[in-house]
């Protein structure tokens, strides 16, 4: 798209700066990867940076070997992420559209009660009772419904919609399009970059959430998610403070170093979701949307 121009000093400086950013942000991940591929006992000696010292895949085999449920949990994680993201993005854009319309009668009241929810929460017990009374316990919908909307996402989408030239929608109206058609045919295509962004937020939120599985869905093993299973494995490697005060201290002392397992779990838990971003990047190309609509 950009015509080839000659590379300037500015480009070189930029390149070097970004190389710096890459080094600084990539290091921890390489470090995690190296420790996850290192002998667990040896890891206790520290000093591992980006290469394993005593290479092994035992930490991974221990995680996969000890848990037959991991594959189906992975499937459930993917499912909740896909469904949660799609429903979430539909809900967010629809609501965002209505409150982006300044002529909408309820624009301000809805905006206000929406924003307030960012800062107001009843706490765990009332939320738990609500979910239970709605009959959502051990039901897949418990992954979808409570996380349907977040005020932050809706407001961000609306701020993009606010920037869409009014002329576009006005002219569509003249042609007799109703509000729903305008939303679907004009607004959505124009908002693809922000939809991609919020999808990423939603997907990461869905993917990383294990606490709702624990609170609301642990009674149904079909609903177990990858993050929840990994959390349980992590628990198994941690020394329990209570157990050590009993006569079982000898057993506890023999626990392996949890650090390597912890790192392997981090890798397994994050790599799938990391792969989402590169697919969304094509929506971040400058001029993509406006150009498309204008022509």
């Amino acid at each position: 798209m950009m015509k080839t121009r000659k590379i300037t000093v500015f480009d070189i400086v930029l390149l070097i700066m970004m190389l710096g950013v890459i080094i600084v942000t990539l290091y921890p991940f390489l470090n995690i990867l190296a420790i996850s591929l290192n002998n667990a006992t040896d890891t206790a000696r520290g000093g591992i940076h980006i290469l394993p010292r005593d290479f092994t895949i035992a930490n991974y085999t221990e995680i996969f070997g000890g848990n037959a449920n991991l594959l189906s949990a992975f499937g459930m994680s993917v499912l909740r992420t896909v469904v949660g993201t799609i429903t979430g993005i539909i809900a967010s854009t629809m609501l965002a559209y209505t409150i982006s319309r300044r002529d909408f009668v309820f624009n301000r009241p809805i905006s206000f009660i929406l924003v307030i929810t960012m800062f107001v929460s009843g706490g765990l017990i009332p939320e738990y009772m609500l979910i239970r009374d709605l009959g959502l316990m051990n039901n897949f919908m418990v992954y979808i419904l409570p996380m349907l909307l977040t005020a932050f996402n809706v407001i961000v989408i609306r701020s993009f919609m606010d920037n869409i030239p009014m002329a576009l929608t006005e002219s569509a109206k003249m042609d007799g399009a109703n509000d729903f058609t305008i939303f679907w045919r004009i607004i959505i295509p124009l908002c693809l970059p922000v939809i991609a962004t919020v999808s990423l937020f939603l997907a990461v939120g869905q993917w990383n959430n294990w606490f709702d599985t624990y609170l609301y869905a642990r009674g149904n093993s079909n609903l177990s998610t990858l993050q929840y299973e990994l959390m349980k494995i992590l628990d198994n490697t941690n020394v329990s403070q209570g157990a050590v005060t009993s006569g079982n201290a000898e057993f506890i002392a023999r626990q392996t170093n949890p650090q390597s397992i912890q790192m392997a779990i981090t890798i397994i838990a994050t790599v799938p979701i990391l792969l989402v971003y590169p697919f969304l990047q094509r929506y971040f190309v400058t001029g993509l949307t406006l150009g498309a609509v204008k022509s």
């Binding site: 809900a91 629809m94 209505t98 909408f104 929810t117 939320e127 349907l148």
Partner: peptide, 16 residues
């Protein structure tokens, strides 16, 4: 378009 979500907000965010 907004009503279902307003109801949602009331149930999931305001009742608790």
């Amino acid at each position: 378009m907004s009503l279902p979500f307003v109801i949602w907000l009331i149930i999931f965010r305001y009742i608790p």
